[in-house]
């Protein structure tokens, strides 16, 4: 995908510039994502990712951009059952139907892919995990609510590091 790609995005999580707030690297966003959705903590389950600056201590937050043309949805062999679109055009995963094939993950135009896959020896446990904006949660996305430094929020605009070729 090129930087002048005409792709448009729905409302999604963005990281603010550091002169507004610096990501503290606490990974609260990853943690509350899985606690809220799955009742556990795991790097295989989170739908938002802290690209950690191990030595620079400057971290980038990555999550689904909710592409208007939703290639992940298009790639799903069980679309409208496993990968679905709700009334607000949010693409979400119905995990009861997801067979863990990974095609949605591969179809994501971002690098790294913004769709996580549960890694498990038990094939039935393998599910796609994708940001659904906490669509059924009255308070909105848990990651935004619980970020201790308010470095993430909602926007339809991509930030420069989010628009990279795959």
């Amino acid at each position: 995908m090129e930087k002048n790609d005409p792709r448009t995005y729905g409302k999604h999580i963005v990281q603010y510039p550091m002169d507004y707030s610096l990501c503290a690297g606490c990974t609260t966003c990853e943690i509350v994502c899985t606690l809220t959705h799955d009742g556990l903590v795991s790097p295989s389950y989170n739908r938002i990712f802290v690209d950690r600056g191990t030595r620079s201590m400057v971290h980038h937050i990555l999550s689904c951009q909710h592409c208007s043309d939703h290639p992940c949805y298009n790639a799903c062999p069980k679309k409208d059952k496993a990968m679905c679109i709700d009334e607000n055009n949010i693409v979400y995963v119905n995990e009861d139907e997801c067979v863990g094939c990974g095609l949605c993950q591969k179809a994501c135009v971002f690098e790294p892919s913004r769709i996580n896959m549960v890694k498990s020896a038990d094939k039935k446990q393998r599910k796609a995990k994708k940001c659904d904006m906490c669509r059924t949660r009255p308070e909105g996305p848990a990651c935004v609510q619980w970020c201790p430094v308010r470095c993430i929020g909602l926007s339809t605009d991509p930030l420069p590091w989010e628009v990279e070729s795959k």
Binding site: D19, Y20, T28, V32, L35, V41, S42, S44, P148, R150
Partner: peptide, 28 residues
């Protein structure tokens, strides 16, 4: 890639707001 399960998630969120009284505001 595995899983850690806390027992009481409601309490966990309560602790997140209470312990050291986080400011929950931007830190530029």
């Amino acid at each position: 890639h595995g899983v850690v399960r806390p027992y009481d998630i409601d309490k966990l969120f309560e602790l997140r707001m209470k312990m050291a009284n986080p400011t929950m505001r931007p830190c530029p």
